[in-house]
Design a protein around this nucleic acid. Structure first.
Lengths: 330, 330
DNA sequence: TTGTAGGCGTTATCAG
DNA sequence: CTGATAACGCCTACAA
């Protein structure tokens, strides 16, 4: 069933059917009703591919995220998808993992599907070596590119991010103020966000005359218990009175470690999560964490997409500040 | 840059370019190399819409889930998306929420994009009144429909699900064996999964001569603390020695409630989660939970999609059994 | 207000 | 092995 069938049955030309379909141009009420009736009777839907071919768009946006099963990323995807859909954009989801080559490959794939825009969710997409971001800049020559919680300075790239430097700096300073002298930082992936957090901690320590060397930064194995075990090992060669974690799940491991070692939290070890996810108040003691304003970032990102695709001018960089949520673990 | 430009520059016809592009038909090595060189030089990618129009497919699958920000659903989406992508299918994600009207609307939307298949993730899509599932059966006349963790008996609908009845029945029986006499069941949404669990509990109770009436089934407000407070209220009119929860997050609320009331878990109250998510071992005491084999279900579902779209015959219903994971909370 | 015809970029069927 | 040409189904000037 195509537009020709409808036009024949309604006794009009395909142009008229098309006009009725799109509400474009003038069509007499009578013919419009007739056409609509035929359309309904046949349960006709215009072919999206044909329309896409003619219009050059299928109103689809590509969403890249390393791993939607991540607590933080899944929420972001959720909010962005819902907002885009409210504006009649579909979301093509693509979980890339963390390998640069995979990111490149999948971006290319998405672009080959003629998406109207591309959204990178998470600072994982900001590479340590700026040259490695060239593939994103290149993509931005074709479609507008949006980054949620990361910043790349390039034409047609629009970013909404949280000031994680300040958040970790402030948090660390506060902890030092309350007596912490030997913090460690635990992370899972070497993302831009991770690097920024490390800088924040390091600077706050430096300001207080505390030496925060590389030995105090540790990458954690995946899984709550493996991670807790790794911490036990670490504690044999390094003493620490505070664990700053790159996300709440790592902080959960720290609590396990503390429990296993008979350490009291926060008295013997302070523990801080990050992201202020449901995990932060599922543990006991509940976790001090950083609310990095995911909702706001999603909102900003999605709005940027919609506005940009509507032809408006938007700002290339928007920064929001985080909140430190103190709970029992510090 | 289209296939005509390439053909001109390579000095061949578009047919030859197309053949080179798709590896179809015989092309002499010499011309193929020439065409490939031109393609590479111009960084040419065939237009996906045109291709879709001609072929009637863009190798895209629609994924419906009520809410990807849910711990369980997001993992499912992740695994399914990755598997589909490995077979060069894109995933159009659509978060529908829980309203039947929205589910219908979004399904229609997805179908209008000519997806090759539709996957419903979660038993939320199996309605209590079978007539309400008709929209799914209708869709199945157009494209194959897959349901992860739910069952609808209809042509062209393929389901992979977990035997949640048995899981809750066994769990309840086990608890009764260990002394439980007054269980309650807490849930968030009235999905098919919820209804099945209730039946499992009720039957196990009946078998042991325990009356499990409707007053022992409670819907929880969203949010960990609101839910805990609702429990406190409930406890004023109803006594219970065990809380069976429809998911782990609700169980977290129960732990909060217990802590607030000074109740010891498991001695005063047993608490069981469901899904065996990261929450189950983030709390203390850690939660007894039910592993409903999400990985297996995802694998089965995705494989079914691929196989079906490859023209193979697949089974309309596959059931896997769950595992009860006992931890400290019972 | 309505209809005609050309274009969007492929793929696939036939001839050659 | 290669090339012309007809679909695929829609939108939209331009004509009437």
């Amino acid at each position: 069933m195509n537009i020709y069938d409808i036009s024949k049955e309604a006794g009009v030309s395909i142009a008229t059917v098309s006009r009725v379909l799109n509400g474009s141009g003038k069509v007499s009420a009578k013919t419009r009703d007739r056409v609509l009736r035929v359309i309904r009777e046949n349960n006709y839907t215009p072919n999206a591919f044909a329309r896409g071919l003619g219009l050059g768009t299928m109103r689809t946006v590509g969403i890249l995220c390393s791993d939607v099963s991540d607590l933080y990323l899944s929420e972001a995807v959720y909010h962005i998808e819902r907002t885009l859909r409210a504006y009649e954009y579909d979301s093509l989801l693509c979980c890339t993992g963390f390998e640069l080559s995979a990111k490149k490959k999948y971006l290319k794939l998405l672009l080959s599907k003629n998406v109207d825009a591309v959204i990178f969710i998470g600072s994982q997409y900001v590479e340590e070596d700026p040259a490695d971001n060239d593939y994103i800049k290149e993509a931005a020559e074709t479609v507008p590119v949006f980054i949620m919680n990361g910043y790349i300075d390039a034409k047609n790239v629009y970013c909404a991010l949280c000031d994680e430097y300040k958040a970790t700096f402030d948090l660390t300073e506060k902890l030092i103020g309350s007596g912490v002298r030997e913090p460690v930082f635990l992370y899972r992936v070497n993302s831009e966000s991770t690097r920024v957090k490390i800088r924040g901690i390091k600077d706050a320590c430096a300001k207080a005359g505390i030496n925060f060397g590389e030995e105090r930064v540790t990458v954690c194995p995946k899984g709550v218990y493996p991670c807790a075990e790794a911490l036990e090992e670490l504690s044999e060669t390094l003493s620490f009175d505070c664990a700053l974690c790159a996300d709440d799940l790592i902080a959960v491991s720290v609590l396990k470690y503390a429990a296993a070692k008979g350490l009291r939290v926060p008295r013997d070890v302070r523990v801080c999560g990050y992201n202020d996810s449901i995990l932060a108040f599922s543990t006991s003691p509940e976790l001090t964490s950083v609310d990095n304003k995911m909702f706001a970032l999603c909102r900003l990102t999605a709005d940027n997409v919609i506005n940009k695709l509507s032809g408006e001018n938007i700002s290339p960089k928007t920064v929001v500040s985080a909140d430190i949520i103190e709970r029992q673990s510090t």
